[in-house]
Nucleic acid binder design. Structure first.
Lengths: 157, 157
DNA sequence: GTGGGTGCAAAGTGTTTGCAAGTGT
DNA sequence: ACACTTGCAAACACTTTGCACCCAC
């Protein structure tokens, strides 16, 4: 179901490279394939590991050099979940306005969208003399398990 | 006008230290005074500079060791505005649910609160099996000047 | 052919930490 | 007195970069 969209995301990125006169190398292909094959959030290091399974020649430097291109294209967003390293979210290609709920114990993340919130944001922002370009909303709280058991059995991170 | 509240924030932090059997040293006093004297967001380095004006013996290490205490107390919040370093926001003591609008060009930041958004967040979060502990909403966009002139004359950062 | 791309390892940058000396309670 | 704190500098961890070689177009 998400496949045709994801495929489009990859194509969109290739077009982005073309427009900037940047080259499609085997390493970039491996990295981009990896990014849009997953719906998970990932770190630079994870992306390196996964990409190397497709093309062993991918280096850490190339991953770090490709990530800014991905974010610049708008198809991937850099996220800060309060850890020491950045996470990247490939779901902005399909859902440019989604938000995150994170469990404070197990770090489980659920994504959601809300037209209502988007509308209020827009109103308030205009009232303050701004106009919205992007928006990020993170809610931290307790997941079901944490509420019921007082602690989560599985930790995600 | 904000003074009595800010004073309370400082007192609240001193109580927090006491409860954890931590000591009130001259360095900590200088740092904490600095933090709650401002309503600006600041970096660790700025906090060091400012604190040293009150007490020259404050070291970078002590600043970095005090910041986690401040965030743990809930009176200061760590913020990521997409720069290479963290910012700290001392306004959570008085306004625990405020949000940020940031100009994409000049980095000007405006804070606002919204009961409506808070209510919707709560509803959605419960529907997804979570309960809200904290929340952070950042909107990026164009400020008045950027919209009118196409570029901002003053850069904040 | 040529200008962009790559891997490697070294450098960079914000933050953390081990240690010996100092200090609040 | 004793445990908590401190400053210093070295150590860290993630990310960036200089360079010589490579390859997509």
């Amino acid at each position: 179901m998400a496949l045709p969209e994801k495929f489009a995301a990859k194509e969109r990125f290739m077009k982005f490279l073309e427009e900037k006169n940047l080259r499609i190398t085997s390493q970039r292909r491996a990295i981009v394939d990896t990014v849009f094959e997953t719906e998970e959030h990932f770190t630079a290091e994870q992306l390196l590991d996964w990409s190397r399974k497709k093309d062993q020649s991918v280096s850490r430097a190339t991953v770090y050099r490709t990530l800014p291109l991905l974010t610049e294209s708008g198809l991937v967003r850099e996220m800060d979940f309060g850890k020491d390293f950045k996470f990247y979210d490939p779901n902005y290609a399909d859902h440019p306005n989604h938000n995150h709920i994170i469990c404070q114990d197990c770090d489980k993340i659920v994504e959601f969208e809300s037209e209502k919130i988007a509308k209020i944001e827009d109103e308030i922002t205009h009232k303050l003399g701004f106009s919205v370009k992007t928006q990020r909303l993170q809610i931290t709280g307790s997941c079901d398990e944490l509420k019921k058991l007082g602690a989560c059995t599985k930790k995600s991170c």
